[in-house]
Simulated scan of single mutants.
Amino acid sequence: MKHKIWFYVSMSLCIITIIVVIGTGIWVYIDDQRFSAHQEVTVLTYASSAKSNPAEGKVDEESTGNGGEDSEDQDISAEKGLFSVEITLPASFFEGRSQDEIMASANEDGIKDVTVNSDGSVTYKMSKSKHKEMLSEYKKSIDDMIAGMLDGPDEVASFTDIKYNDNMSEFNVYVDKSKYNEMESMSVLAFYTSGLFYHTLNGTDSSDLEVVVNFIDKDTDEVFQSGSSKDLGE
């Protein structure tokens, strides 16, 4: 059973990658900024590489914002200081946007300290309260997505409830097994990417990055199917 779900998940990742390559815009919202499915694939790539090289994903402070050579690095990082948080997003997040547009958008969101680095990545420095607000807004976008899956345009017939823990490392999907089919397991791919993205923005160490999704029988509370982001791509 577990092998089957990862077969479908792997197929989904391939489809998403193809969509990205041909430039199809599939958008999700985070902190009032638009990010394409390419960014979610970037998060998965980041998490996968971090398993074999925990050092990846950390910002090289000597190479950001100092006129160095362009980099193909696609890492996302968050560094927490005593009073502030720095978040660096890769250049791929800002394709088609000018530096002025990036700065203006950040200022509108109350982020005044913005650096467009030589490799095209952008570093935001914000207060801890602003960082907390950003994470809260991101969780709200996940809640909206879940609402759509339970009773909305993206409704999955067998899903009766979806819950996640405080740090978004575990999602529990309650299902009516009489209506469930394994193809519906593909619907939860966004939970892996969303959870990993949340962890990364929250400064979680790369070696600790993991999101688990459980499928639970609503009548018996039995976990009958489960998967981990660490298994993606294996």
Score class of each variant (00 low, 15 high):
3 H>M: 13
14 C>T: 12
15 I>F: 13
16 I>L: 05
16 I>S: 09
21 V>K: 05
30 I>Q: 06
33 Q>P: 02
34 R>T: 12
34 R>N: 01
44 L>I: 10
45 T>A: 13
49 S>Y: 11
50 A>Q: 03
53 N>W: 12
55 A>T: 04
60 D>G: 08
63 S>K: 09
72 E>M: 14
88 T>P: 07
90 P>E: 06
92 S>Q: 09
94 F>H: 06
95 E>G: 03
99 Q>R: 10
101 E>A: 14
108 E>N: 14
108 E>Y: 02
109 D>N: 08
114 V>M: 05
121 S>H: 07
121 S>G: 06
123 T>I: 04
124 Y>R: 06
129 S>A: 11
130 K>H: 09
133 E>P: 03
138 Y>I: 01
139 K>V: 07
140 K>V: 13
143 D>P: 01
147 A>V: 07
147 A>W: 03
149 M>N: 09
149 M>C: 12
151 D>H: 11
154 D>P: 04
156 V>T: 01
157 A>N: 05
170 E>S: 02
171 F>K: 01
176 D>S: 13
179 K>N: 07
181 N>R: 04
181 N>F: 04
183 M>W: 13
188 V>D: 00
197 F>Y: 11
202 N>A: 10
203 G>R: 08
205 D>I: 01
207 S>I: 15
214 N>R: 09
215 F>G: 00
216 I>V: 08
218 K>T: 02
225 Q>S: 09
227 G>F: 03
